[in-house]
Write a protein that binds this DNA or RNA. Structure first.
Lengths: 181, 181
DNA sequence: GTTCGACCTGTCAACAGTGGAAAGTAGGAT
DNA sequence: ATCCTACTTTCCACTGTTGACAGGTCGAAC
C-alpha cells in the first residue's frame, strides 16, 4: 500500500486539500501511481486518524487543508530508505507473449508489431512531455525528470524488444535458440 | 482480470488439475502473473460455470482434470489479438524516486545505488535461469524465452538508469537539466 | 502399523482499488 | 433570480488478490 506514501510525499513540501491532491495525482503522478478521488479522501481520513497528517486550515466551502506532521515525515523517510521496494510482477502484455504460439506465426508477428508501435507512440508522447517540461523550472519536475527518463528508456526498450522478438519468432517458429545478451 | 486467460493459456496445450496449474504458475509464470492456490480453484470453478473449460477426467483422490473447450479457445484468441493490453502503471520504485528530495542528496544517491545493485542481482539470476533453460528443449520455454529476454533487458535498463540518475543527482542537486536521449 | 510428506480440493475474512452516485457550497454568467 | 460550472467531501457496491485455515487420499519409510 503505497498510496499512503504518495500522499505523504506530496504533502511534504506543500499543504493541500483533497481536491488539490486529486489534481496533483492526475498530473504529476498519473504515470507512476494513479489514484481516484474516492481513494484519496479515504486515505486522508486514515492518515489523519493515524496522526501522520493534520488539518491546518478550514476553507469556506468545507475545504480542509492538510499538512504533514513530524510522524508523517518520519514515516515517509522510513519508507523511502528502509522499506524494500516491491517488484512489479504482473504484466498483462508479457502474459500474452507466453501464449503467443496459440495463434499463427503471422498473427504472432502482427501482435508484436502492434506492441512495437504502441511503445513507440508512448515514447514519443513522453518525449514531448519532456521537451515541454524542459522549459519551466517546476519544483515537481526535479525528480519527475528522473522518472521521465526512466519512462523514455523503458518505452525504447519495449520497442527494441518487440522487434527482436518478432525476428526471433520468424527465424524459429518451432524451437527458439537461447537469448542473446 | 487476466488470471482467467493465464489459466486458459496453460490449458490450451495440455489438460491439468488445479494442483498441476498451481505448480505451473509457481514455476513458469511466477514472474509474469503470480497466482495463489485459492485463486486457481475459484477461477477453475468460474471457468467451468462459464463453459470455457470442462472436467475431462476424475482421478483417484478427488483429482479433477480440466481441459479447454472450443469457447475457451475462442476467448483466449480474442483476448490475445483483440483486447488492448493494459499498461502497467503503478511502480513502487518510481514513486520513491519522485520523493527523493525529501532525503539528503547523499541518501538519495545511496538509494539509487541500492536500486542498481538489486537490479544487477536480478539480472544475474535471470541470466542463470536462461543458461539453465538453454539446455533443455521444454515446450514451455519457447515463448518463455521471449519473456526471459524481456526480463534481461529490463533489469539491465534499470541498472543503467539508476547509475545515470545518481550521476544526475550528484551533478545538479537543485535543478536538474532536461534528460538526454 | 503408523507416521510423514506429497498430493489434492476447497472456504473464509480482509483489504486495496475502481467506478459511480449523491450532495453540498460558492462565484460568475445570463 | 437562476443556472451553470468548479470545487469539495463522502458513501457504496463490486472485483481481484492474499493468506490462513480446513479438509482429504495415497505411497513410502521407519
Amino acid at each position: 500500500m503505497s498510496l499512503r506514501h504518495a500522499v505523504l510525499g506530496l504533502l511534504a513540501d506543500r499543504t493541500a486539500s483533497g481536491y488539490d491532491l486529486m489534481r496533483l495525482f492526475q498530473t504529476s503522478l498519473a504515470n507512476v501511481w494513479p489514484a481516484t478521488q474516492s481513494q484519496l479522501y479515504t486515505e486522508l481520513n486514515r492518515l489523519s486518524d493515524a496522526g501522520l497528517v493534520t488539518v491546518t486550515a478550514e476553507g469556506p466551502r468545507g475545504r480542509k487543508e492538510y499538512g504533514i506532521t513530524g510522524d508523517g515525515r518520519a514515516e515517509l523517510r522510513h519508507w523511502l530508505l528502509e522499506v524494500e521496494p516491491e517488484r512489479n510482477r504482473r504484466s498483462d502484455a508479457l502474459l500474452r507473449v507466453f501464449f503467443l504460439d496459440q495463434v499463427s506465426p503471422g498473427q504472432g508477428r502482427a501482435y508484436l508489431e502492434r506492441e512495437r508501435r504502441l511503445a513507440g507512440e508512448r515514447h514519443r508522447a513522453l518525449r514531448e512531455l519532456a521537451d515541454a517540461l524542459a522549459g519551466e523550472p517546476d519544483p515537481l519536475a526535479v525528480n519527475g525528470l528522473l522518472a521521465l527518463e526512466w519512462g523514455l528508456r523503458f518505452t525504447r526498450m519495449q520497442e527494441e524488444w518487440a522487434e527482436w522478438a518478432a525476428e526471433r519468432l520468424a527465424a524459429a517458429p518451432a524451437a527458439a535458440p537461447p537469448p542473446a545478451d
